[in-house]
Computed example of a mutant assay.
Amino acid sequence: MDRLPSASAFILKVAAIVGMTCNHVANVFGGALPGGAMVALYALGGLTFPIMAYLLCEGYRHTSSVLRYAERLGVFAAISQVPYSLLFGATGNVLITLLIGLGMLWALDRMRSRALCALAMLAGLVVSSLCDWGVIGPVMILLFWHLHDRPRGVALAMLVPLLAFGLPALSWVISETTPLSLGVLGYYTIGFGLATVLMLNYNGRRGRPMKWFFYVYYPAHLMVLWALTQIV
């Protein structure tokens, strides 16, 4: 079988944006959608966070300034929090989760004191428990970082969230087969599977630059979805 075409960072970002949009549409309007559409949207939604976490590690590895990288994440996390809270309540949005993960990578890389580093890791996990993806978000980032150089390291890193969420989702489907339970199972199987394939075929190239588009798109699409809830 021929190897799949390689994927640049641009392709990964497009896939993450598509998956994120599908997931948020499913979460906001899923009850009004046909069952098959809900399942498909949730399944595609599983593409998003693994790719975002993986690209954060790539960004940290290649950035010329971790401080500027953190500033960008922080500014757009703050901007995004208002529409995110309007849609999903008082939890931190995913950019905050990524910012925490970035801080944990920096702490592991720069802190000489193991005690201080351990405290930084603990603090990051505690704060992330209040954000989108909870504790597992930074854990996935750390797994991608530490397993990067191992053969099929991406697949190994993806085993943790797959087992942590996929098995309960399968149990839910067995006990109660509904479009929502099938969609959640698709999120952690189909979505995660597609994300893993894309990341395994990442070629290390940036491709077409779209850094600012991604940052702007996140709060913009949340605001559009909230505005639609006021109209529909």
Rank of each mutant, 00 (worst) to 15 (best):
A78I: 06
Y69P: 13
A78Y: 00
S64D: 13
R110Y: 02
A123H: 08
M38V: 13
Y54H: 13
L98C: 00
G103L: 01
A77R: 03
G74E: 10
A115L: 15
V82T: 12
E58F: 06
S113L: 01
P83R: 06
A77Q: 08
A107V: 04
L116V: 12
G36A: 14
A123L: 15
V66C: 04
A37K: 11
L73F: 12
T48R: 12
I51Q: 10
L125K: 05
T97V: 01
P83N: 05
Q81P: 01
L99M: 05
I100S: 03
A118S: 12
L99G: 01
F88D: 12
L108E: 14
T97A: 08
Q81F: 02
Y54T: 03
L55S: 02
L102C: 05
L67S: 09
A107P: 04
L41I: 09
L116D: 06
V75A: 11
V126W: 14
S128V: 07
L105A: 01
A120Y: 10
R72T: 07
M52N: 11
S65P: 08
M52D: 01
R112G: 13
G101Q: 01
A77W: 02
E58T: 01
G103H: 05
G89R: 04
L55Y: 09
L105I: 02
G124E: 04
S80I: 06
F49P: 01
L105Y: 00
Y42M: 13
S129E: 05
Y84H: 15
V126A: 15
Y60S: 02
V127Q: 08
L86I: 10
Q81A: 10
Y84M: 10
L108C: 15
P34T: 12
P83I: 05
F76Y: 14
E58M: 05
M121S: 03
L56A: 06
L86Q: 06
A120K: 04
L99T: 01
T91D: 07
L119W: 14
W106V: 12
V66T: 14
G45W: 00
G36T: 11
L44A: 13
